[in-house]
């Protein structure tokens, strides 16, 4: 029997504070240790309602949402004017800028090179979620 491809070391539990010798001088940093910054908590406010979606196209560049970005979509947020929403319009799913005045909802592209988006009055509009953050890798990491 063989196991292929293992050359990893075994996990070594690291103590939170380095205190090698009990008799030594205590680290002056000990009282100032804080938790690590958790990117996940920064980007995901409401975990069960949050989904990752890959952006295709350049219709949202005016809202800094670029082709191939990862949009973080929170379904628990109520859309506010100017939000980028993921929205179903007559069975087509896309990103749009949300505007609402009274009962009138309008949706828009965020790219001056695009024509105005016409929402027919009879269209069925259903917001899937609100884009709460996005990740734009400056150097493309390998996908997969």
């Amino acid at each position: 029997m063989q196991i292929y491809g293992i050359s990893l070391g075994y996990p070594i539990p690291l103590p939170l504070l380095a205190r090698p010798v009990a008799a030594g001088f205590p680290s002056p940093a000990d009282d100032f240790i804080e938790e690590e910054i958790d990117l996940q908590r920064l980007l995901i406010v409401n975990r069960p309602a949050t989904f990752l979606v890959r952006v295709a196209g350049d219709s949202m560049v005016g809202k800094s949402l670029f082709n191939d970005d990862l949009a973080i979509v929170d379904r628990s947020l109520e859309p506010q004017n100017g939000d980028v929403v993921m929205v179903d319009v007559d069975g087509e799913r896309s990103f749009k800028v949300w505007q609402r005045q009274g009962h009138r909802v309008s949706l828009a592209f965020a790219n001056p090179r695009y024509p105005a988006f016409n929402l027919s009055p009879s269209a069925v509009v259903e917001v899937w979620g609100v884009v709460s953050a996005s990740i734009n890798p400056r150097r493309r990491a390998q996908r997969g």
Partner: peptide
């Protein structure tokens, strides 16, 4: 595998 959404 995450969903891809465009501008439609």
């Amino acid at each position: 595998d995450i969903p891809v959404v465009g501008s439609a």
